[in-house]
Write a protein that binds this DNA or RNA. Structure first.
Length: 289
RNA sequence: GGAGGAAUAGCGAAGUGGUCAAACGCGGCAGACUGUAAAUCUGUUCUUUCGGGUUCCGUGGUUCAAAUCCACGUUCCUCCA
């Protein structure tokens, strides 16, 4: 059995994951693209040592903020961890909100090999598009990243059409935590306000060291604060911006979950989280028999 | 009290007689997603039984035709007292 716990930010995935790990003798594999970085703790709402309650966690803090990490790496790392945990007779529990990472790890996603990677920086979008015109394939023509990637794929010798969405493992349980949009947005706002001062302290050293890595320029909470330190925005504006970006992020997560994966959703009981845990445990029991 | 200026869709803002249900930006909603995914990109956003219907502060007027011109009123801003 492999358990996947996902859902938008701020619904309680961490709490649930630890509870399930203890019940099922599991180990947790992080499935959040920003939590792999050391030092990005507050803004990513990373589990604390205490919250782990002795449960083993993997793929957290495995990279320095200046380093880059991507789905490609995650796919390898996560699959490796899954095997490792299984071989110990324990249950791997993937936890996180990065749907793409989860999908790449568990489904038959085939990325180009390392040596087939190409650099198209010299080409303009138009030029890339005209190269893509040689192939009879639908293109997201304004999306440079996807165009480059697609071209790279088409130009590689090993290119083959992939049969989509084939799960590589048997017995995977996709569990999603959800709540109404209203409540979710309120929780997102509240959480940010609670962590805000600490977040500022967390980001400041990175800014002072002039770090401009991918991790810091894309992660919500970090990129916005850089604008504050650059004197482009006030703290209040940044606070609002982070909230807005977080809400948009949650929305996009739902788009992914609803269209890319088959997830069993559970409405979280925030007043009594044990109810939610029990509900999910009985779902798992039922599934196992 | 006097002199000017402004009022446009959720917000900001173009438009100054017909091609205006009204550019553009933001926000909202939805979607895509095979090595940056907390990223990147796309669609949509008055209303409708898809024929149409009701809009540009209000009322009245000019005109074949008004968001656009005129009159009065309302609110707001600036300047002078």
């Amino acid at each position: 059995m492999i358990i996947v716990i996902t859902g938008p930010t701020a619904v309680g995935k961490t709490k649930l994951s630890v509870a399930l790990a203890k019940i099922y003798n599991g180990e947790i594999i992080n499935a959040d693209s920003t939590q792999v970085y050391k030092g990005m703790d507050i803004g990513t709402a990373k589990v604390t040592k205490e919250e782990m309650e002795g449960v083993k966690h993997h793929l957290l803090d495995i990279k320095e903020v200046e380093e880059d990490y991507s789905v490609f790496d995650y796919q390898k790392d996560a699959r490796c961890k899954i095997e490792e945990i299984k071989s110990k007779g324990k249950v791997p529990i993937l936890v996180g909100g990065t749907g793409y990472y989860i999908k790449a790890a568990l489904y038959n996603y085939i990325f180009n090999r390392e040596e087939e990677k190409k650099d198209y920086n010299a080409l303009s979008l138009e030029e890339i598009n005209s190269l893509l015109d040689n192939y009879d394939i639908e293109v997201d023509k304004n999306n440079r990243r996807r165009c480059e990637r697609l071209l790279e794929k088409l130009e590689s010798d090993t290119y083959q059409e992939q049969n989509d969405f084939e799960l590589l493992y048997d017995d995977v349980l996709f569990i999603g935590l959800t709540t109404s949009r209203d409540i979710l947005y309120k929780r997102i706002d509240q959480r940010l306000d609670d962590m805000f001062i600490n977040l500022v302290d967390e980001v400041k050293p990175f800014y002072i060291k002039k770090y401009k890595s991918k991790a810091l320029q894309t992660a919500i909470g970090y990129k916005e604060l850089y604008e504050f330190f650059d004197n482009k925005k006030t703290l209040k504006e940044v606070n609002e911006l982070i909230k807005q970006n977080s809400r948009n992020y949650a929305k996009k997560q739902y788009t992914w979950f609803n269209n890319q994966m088959d997830i069993k959703w559970f409405n979280v009981d925030f007043d009594n989280f044990n109810n939610t845990i029990n509900e999910i445990v009985s779902y798992i029991e039922k599934k196992q028999n």
